[in-house]
Simulated scan of single mutants.
Amino acid sequence: MAVQDVAGARVAAAGGADRLELCAALAGTGGLTPSTGMVAAVADALRGTGVGVHVLVRPRAGGFVFSAEETDVQVRDVRSVLDAGADGVVVGAMTPAGEVDAAALAAFVAAAGDAEVTFHRAIDQVARPVDVLEVLASAGVRRVLTSGGAPRAGEGLDALAALAGRGRELGVEIMAGGGVRVEDLPALVAAGVHAVHLSARRTVVADGGPGGGGASGYDVTDPDVVAATRAALDAGTAP
């Protein structure tokens, strides 16, 4: 489950989430690297719960083709968030030709050491994602977050089923994510994915004034959506 702060992490853990992806600016950008202070605070809050904290490492919005400087920043961020208490990292990089950036990925995996590495939805830009799984497995990726190439995971069921099947052969978990709704969960589980990923967020209206982003508000993790997700998974065969 994607969360953005300590309160959201507590809500998700209490509601039955098994693993969290901690990020920042989720609604506006699709997620960016959170501060090391936030990582440390969430890790402290969840210590002893058994809920893993995996941190998104992404320096900016606007795609996944990164310069050498941006790649270096991400390598530093991987090390920093793990030092702050994260259990794993969520990364991804692409070449201008639309292929996985193997050199950048190798640098991220090396920086992660023994920590788990998840490759994020950059894979949904790949023309033949099933073929890419072998590359990711060889690089040391443990898990892949994907919608099956569709705008929403609930619309990518056939691709997700194919990915899950190949992932089992390679020892790579397939985690369905991207616009996941509670009503999508039975079909996603039936597709054979190893896990499902959603944000369970709602917006709180707040006026920041001229210097605070206006009246756009901010996101919080909704305990009702978390509870409904856990109930839906428990009612079926949870991945």
Rank of each mutant, 00 (worst) to 15 (best):
25 A>L: 11
59 P>S: 08
24 A>W: 11
102 A>I: 05
170 L>F: 09
78 V>H: 02
237 T>E: 07
37 G>D: 15
213 G>F: 13
40 A>L: 06
154 G>S: 07
233 L>W: 07
189 V>S: 15
191 A>R: 10
104 A>R: 09
234 D>K: 06
211 G>W: 12
36 T>C: 11
144 V>T: 02
34 P>N: 14
180 V>P: 09
145 L>M: 06
165 G>N: 13
63 G>D: 06
199 S>G: 10
73 V>W: 05
235 A>V: 02
166 R>N: 03
196 V>Q: 06
171 G>S: 09
67 S>M: 08
84 A>G: 08
222 D>A: 04
103 A>P: 03
204 V>K: 09
150 A>Q: 10
59 P>N: 12
158 D>E: 13
99 E>D: 08
7 A>S: 14
214 G>N: 14
200 A>G: 08
117 V>M: 04
230 R>K: 03
120 H>N: 08
227 A>H: 09
78 V>L: 02
165 G>W: 05
43 A>F: 00
78 V>T: 11
88 G>V: 05
204 V>W: 11
163 L>K: 09
65 V>D: 05
135 V>F: 12
35 S>W: 06
166 R>Y: 00
20 L>A: 12
10 R>A: 08
63 G>N: 04
93 A>T: 06
135 V>I: 13
152 R>N: 11
23 C>L: 08
